[in-house]
Design a protein around this nucleic acid. Structure first.
Lengths: 188, 188
DNA sequence: TTGTAATCCAACATTATGTCTATTATAATG
DNA sequence: CATTATAATAGACATAATGTTGGATTACAA
């Protein structure tokens, strides 16, 4: 892994643009945010923006990748394998709670569901932990039901200030998933 | 109820614009559709568009309202009370299947989730049919889990060509909802 | 047929976009 | 510290969509 040294000016520019975009997303939908307004908020020249990003969506995607990378890093710090299937959901929720303001913003409607897609993958890892011995159609829809349910509860939790503990939400989701599964399982 | 007679020209204009918008939404996200392109597709003058709508989102909203009105009408035709809590979910699914191409489009990502919000209300009516005797927090999250799960399964069903019968999906959703609820219910 | 009203057409100022170049400011390096 | 490299800026530019307007044209309803 090569350690590319980044010019401090570049760091500054990108930092300001990211902060500005997140701030704007708190107020309006990403699709309505113009490059002009964004650069004014960040106090960065518009031409400079185009050196680094093609449009606000591009910037948002880069923010997303960083956030996800940080989540993975956190999982590793807690000695958990992000690719394995038996990591603790609680740990992710923990991290989200620590950064709940940012997460709430990024999971809001104003982000055009840029983040949901990736969380979907995570959710699928989680749901794959369960033994789902049932017919294929039921399995398909149950996965759909479970993953979207999980994401939605997660978002609601953030929206309401992440008051409950990560453990509570984690337990809730496990129970809810199990509950649905039990109803469709074939007798063994 | 006054019967306002509508000029045939107006009918024509609105019809063409609606068709054009739906066609465009099949291909691209609503936020990227310009008034110019829309009017060209519909072969309607751009100034005329502004007489009737403020922007493509406005038009989409009016389409939404019509579709929902038609659903309600269909429910009434089937002698079901749309405001009551014990109407058949199957009937709605039936109607969606009959118009599955349109519904698939309108529930796609390209519509910026304009339709999801209203379906949420419907879903809440459905979930209110259940006796949820449990603590308030669990109830809150379980409702979230259930409604979003239902919507998601519904969308998936449409996306995959609505192959299963309305009865199958209806039964599936009922079972899945019940399953989650059973896990959290207080002993009576 | 006739008055009404909806559509069309052309023009307009305004605004954001994306690109480019010369200039200035800052960082990295010896 | 002085020099070199490069990032950011300011400004200009063509392009394109927006939203509005006034007047000509056309289709409708009665």
């Amino acid at each position: 892994m090569k350690v590319e040294k980044v010019d401090r000016r570049v760091k500054y520019t990108k930092y300001m643009l990211k902060e500005a975009l997140v701030a704007l997303i708190r107020e309006q939908h990403i699709s309505t945010i113009s490059v002009k307004a964004l650069c004014e908020k960040a106090d960065i020249n518009r031409s400079t923006f185009y050196v680094h990003y093609s449009d606000p969506y591009d910037l948002l995607n880069q923010i997303k990748n960083e956030v996800l990378a940080n989540v993975m890093l956190y999982l590793k710090e807690q000695d958990q394998d992000p690719t394995g299937s038996n990591f603790q959901l609680t740990t992710i929720l923990e991290y989200a709670k620590k950064n709940s303001e940012l997460f709430e913003t990024l999971f809001s409607e104003n982000c055009d569901y840029v983040f949901q897609d990736d969380i979907l993958e995570l959710s699928q890892i989680i749901s794959s932990q369960y033994n789902m011995d049932m017919d294929e159609t039921a399995k398909k829809y149950l996965k759909e039901f479970g993953t979207s349910g999980c994401i939605s509860v997660f978002e609601r939790w953030l929206q309401d200030g992440a008051k409950e503990s990560p453990e509570y939400i984690s337990e809730f989701l496990k129970k809810a998933l199990q509950g649905g599964i039990m109803c469709f399982k074939n007798p063994e």
